[in-house]
């Protein structure tokens, strides 16, 4: 070996072995895994103590006396699209066409529906983001009290949910109808405190769903038998929410005035709506959060234009 003339064959074998072993080491044994926890051990001890010491509620936690509403106002407005509305894709109606697509009718996606005449955007959710004392008449106007006992109607016909964007209160019941001559099931995904639910609803039948808690953002409602059927649903504890109509308008009446409020704005295709122009002025709503402070009896009217690029997700 010291002659400087190593045997070429053994050298090749050795090189191959090195290459193979290196490759094995580099590739490793693991597939993609979530990263391990990044724990700050010192803080764990402090936090553990803090959680344990939290037994008696601090006396002054509520004495910071959050501002109280001084009356009620109205928040209304309209969402419009800047630019050309994207084409609504046709859905794959692959079952029971005689009921679901009579006469070979094309069924279009409702993920983004824009009114061709006015540019209004349908099914934009606007809802109060903060927790409010629900049994305090200063915060919840009396007009909302009776409605809590009224069920919200959710119907389906020709294998389409007739309300594509639905918002309701956690304490309300949802009355699910079926106006089709065939059976459906209503599969409500739920989220946060809103219970999931999945039950058959026979032809012409009706069933009830009570969410029991609120969700942070809208979730899916589907029919497992007809997978193209889709709706979005939001459940909130407070009554302050709205879903924009076909012309893009919405209205929330009797909103607590004289206190700073935070609403959130969400649309199926865009998620939380962040970049908008309100009354012609560009505004950024961080994480879809829209701050509003109303004066008593004031009607705040917002004209919100959203660029078509926001709906490209």
């Amino acid at each position: 070996m010291s002659t400087g003339q190593p045997l070429p064959a053994s050298r090749n074998v050795a090189i191959a072995a090195v290459a193979l072993a290196t490759a094995l080491v580099l590739v490793g044994c693991e597939r993609s895994l979530a990263p391990a926890e990044r724990v700050n051990q010192a803080d764990v001890i402090i936090l553990r103590k803090a959680f344990g010491a939290e037994e008696e509620p601090t006396a002054d936690s509520n004495s910071g006396a959050a501002a109280e509403p001084t009356g009620f106002g109205t928040l209304r407005g309209r969402f419009t699209l800047i630019g050309n509305p994207p084409e609504r894709p046709a859905l794959d109606v692959n079952k029971e066409q005689e009921v679901c697509a009579p006469g070979g009718k094309k069924v279009l996606s409702e993920a983004l529906v824009v009114d061709p005449a006015s540019g209004g955007i349908k099914d934009v959710f606007v809802y109060l983001n903060q927790k409010i004392p629900l049994d305090d008449p200063k915060w919840v106007h009396e007009s909302y009290v009776a409605a809590l006992n009224e069920p919200v109607i959710f119907d389906q016909k020709e294998c389409i949910f007739l309300t594509h964007g639905l918002a309701m209160r956690a304490g309300q019941a949802l009355k699910i109808l079926n106006s089709d001559p065939i059976g459906h099931n209503t599969n409500i995904q739920g989220g946060g405190g809103a219970q999931p639910f999945n039950q058959t609803v026979s032809a012409g039948g009706q069933i009830f769903y009570t969410p029991q808690g609120e969700s942070a953002s809208p979730f899916d409602v589907t029919c497992s038998i007809h997978p193209w059927m889709s709706a979005k649903m939001l459940v909130r504890n407070s009554p302050y929410f709205a879903v924009s109509k076909a012309d893009g308008t919405f209205e929330i009446a009797n909103v607590p005035a004289g206190v700073p409020l935070e609403f959130r704005v969400w649309q199926e295709k865009a998620g939380f709506i962040q970049k908008v122009s309100v009354d012609g002025e560009f505004v950024e709503w961080s994480k879809g959060k829209l701050p509003v402070t109303l004066q008593p009896d004031q009607t705040l009217e917002l004209s919100v234009a959203i660029d078509a690029s926001a709906f490209s997700r």
Partner: peptide, 19 residues
């Protein structure tokens, strides 16, 4: 290299993974 292969990747220490 052979030592590395023989040593293997081993089992990682038991820790919870992030969601």
């Amino acid at each position: 290299a052979l030592a590395a292969v023989a040593g293997g990747c081993g089992s990682p220490p038991a820790e919870f993974r992030e969601y």
